[in-house]
């Protein structure tokens, strides 16, 4: 098992990029340092990884799935609509030695095909797919009593998530603000890197 945050970061750097990113899914690979920071927070601050069943909705390249397995989750299931991404994630999990505790399912975040203790997810930010945030949040609380969900920063989003979580019978327990440097995955991204303010929400069912 991984012993330090920097070891986790180094391991996650070996997870592949999307070979063929699909704009409708807003696919991009989260940078390894922020994924490591998030998983360290989830696992060490809240004790929500080791020995737990974890689900990663919209797992993409499998950064959260593989990272949670490296941190000692009992089992992790990565769920995504994109089978090509799932196959790549499965390959990466094997290369990183966590093929045994990771599982992959073709599925929709809004209709999760599994039950878990904890969800960790990075939904599309909703720029191109309206309502995606809602579907992911609904799916997350249906899948598990505790969910970590990464969203665009800002008070407007916070207000929306607070009221939607309540509608779903849950509440925001904690918010971890982060800055993420994104490389230009898509051609319409003009800047070399752009920094985005994001918030990681810990949402619990009441």
């Amino acid at each position: 098992m991984i012993a330090s945050k920097s070891d986790l970061e180094i391991a996650l750097e070996r997870v592949g990029q999307f070979s063929n990113p699909k704009i409708r899914f807003e696919q991009y690979r989260l940078p390894a340092p922020q994924v490591a920071e998030i998983l360290w927070y989830v696992g060490l601050r809240h004790g929500d990884i080791e020995g737990r069943v974890v689900a990663d909705l919209g797992c993409g390249t499998g950064m959260f799935t593989i990272g949670a397995a490296l941190m000692g989750a009992e089992m992790v299931v990565g769920i995504d609509l994109d089978t090509e991404a799932i196959m790549a994630a499965r390959g990466a999990a094997g290369r990183l030695g966590v093929g045994g505790s990771t599982h992959f399912v073709e599925g929709d975040a809004g209709h999760p095909p599994a039950r878990a203790d904890v969800v960790i997810q990075n939904p599309p930010f909703g720029v191109r797919v309206r309502e995606a945030d809602r579907a992911f949040l609904r799916g997350a609380l249906e899948c598990a009593p505790t969910a970590y969900s990464l969203h665009k920063g800002g008070l407007k989003v916070r207000g929306f998530i607070a009221s939607y979580a309540k509608e779903l019978g849950g509440r925001i327990d904690e918010i971890l603000p982060l800055k993420i440097k994104l490389p230009p995955t898509y051609q319409f991204h003009k800047k070399r890197f752009h920094a985005v303010d994001v918030d990681l929400y810990r949402i619990v069912r009441d």
Partner: peptide, 8 residues
């Protein structure tokens, strides 16, 4: 191909 396909 080893992947359960569990779409709506």
């Amino acid at each position: 191909e080893t992947i359960p396909r569990m779409l709506p």
